[in-house]
Simulated scan of single mutants.
Amino acid sequence: MPAEQPTILATSGGLKPGARTRLEFDLLLHHAVELSGVSGRAPRVTHLGTAGGDQRAFNAELDEAARLAGIQFSHLNLFTMPNHPDPAAHLLEQDVVWVSGGSVVNLLAVWRAHGLDSILRTAWQEGVVLAGVSAGSICWFQGGTTDSFGPELRAVGNGLALLPYSNGVHYDSEARRRPLVHRLVADGTLGETHCTDDGVGLVYRGTSLVEAVSEVRGKGAYRVTRGEGGDVLEEMVEPRYLG
């Protein structure tokens, strides 16, 4: 059952420490499933861990979390070769694609090498909900800020551009993120930039931001733009708490 419109949930969250497992799915990941509209069967969610090098140990921890959540969970690994003979068919069978964090620069390069940039665009257009955290958030936008190149944050500008904005993640937990976004918007390196505190996600229908949602109280989302005089304007988007 595809989503009614092309849908993206771009987050700085989605996982939490587990009670009996190291990780559990938090409210944002569950909301991605809700956005897909699936009912009457176990949701099908596939995980892309490209940004972290497809770590099998982390995949196993997600498998445990999915079992507890009652989700039919799978992985599309690209290292050392795709683990599905037809990645396009696999992705189009899913209700949700969830992309983990890591290096967004490496993620984009590997996806393009395997043709996933066009495959994911098709999946989005066909109603598969695209979602993820950190690198798995930035990738859907034109660009954003990243530590993919080293400890000093830099701009990345070659995202998949499904959404015509830039993206800032971990806006409240990493002190250098906010000032860099402001500087890059001021000098025109980034256009309108949508940012999330940890635990917050942004829901897009088509290319329109429809709401911010949160799995943690007291957090925010932000729209950062450049004013006519060159001043940077930051507008808070109050999230709806999912709990």
Rank of each mutant, 00 (worst) to 15 (best):
R112S: 11
R112D: 09
R112A: 08
A113E: 15
A113L: 13
A113G: 14
H114P: 03
H114C: 01
L116A: 09
D117K: 08
L120C: 08
L120F: 12
R121G: 13
A123S: 07
A123H: 01
A123P: 02
W124D: 04
W124F: 06
Q125F: 01
Q125K: 14
Q125N: 09
E126C: 13
E126L: 08
G127W: 04
G127S: 00
G127M: 01
V128Y: 00
V128W: 00
V128M: 07
L130M: 02
L130T: 07
A131R: 05
A131P: 02
V133I: 14
S134M: 03
S134N: 05
S134R: 04
S134K: 02
G136F: 01
G136Q: 06
G136L: 05
I138G: 05
I138R: 08
W140F: 10
G144L: 01
G144K: 04
T146H: 04
S148A: 08
S148C: 02
G150H: 07
P151Q: 04
P151L: 08
P151M: 06
E152Q: 15
E152N: 14
A155L: 06
G157V: 02
N158H: 14
G159S: 10
L160C: 04
L162P: 01
N167C: 15
N167I: 02
G168V: 00
G168P: 06
D172G: 10
D172W: 05
S173P: 01
S173C: 14
S173E: 15
E174H: 14
A175W: 09
R176N: 11
R177F: 05
R177T: 15
L180M: 05
V181N: 00
V181L: 01
R183Y: 10
R183W: 09
R183M: 09
V185W: 01
V185G: 00
A186S: 14
D187G: 09
D187T: 02
D187L: 11
D187E: 11
G188R: 05
G188V: 13
T193L: 06
H194S: 00
C195R: 05
C195D: 05
T196C: 13
T196D: 01
T196Q: 08
D198K: 11
D198N: 14
G199C: 05
G199V: 02
V200T: 13
G201F: 09
G206W: 12
G206D: 11
V210N: 05
V210I: 06
E211S: 13
A212L: 03
G218H: 03
G220R: 04
G220Y: 06
V224F: 01
V224P: 00
V224W: 04
R226Q: 13
R226M: 07
E228F: 11
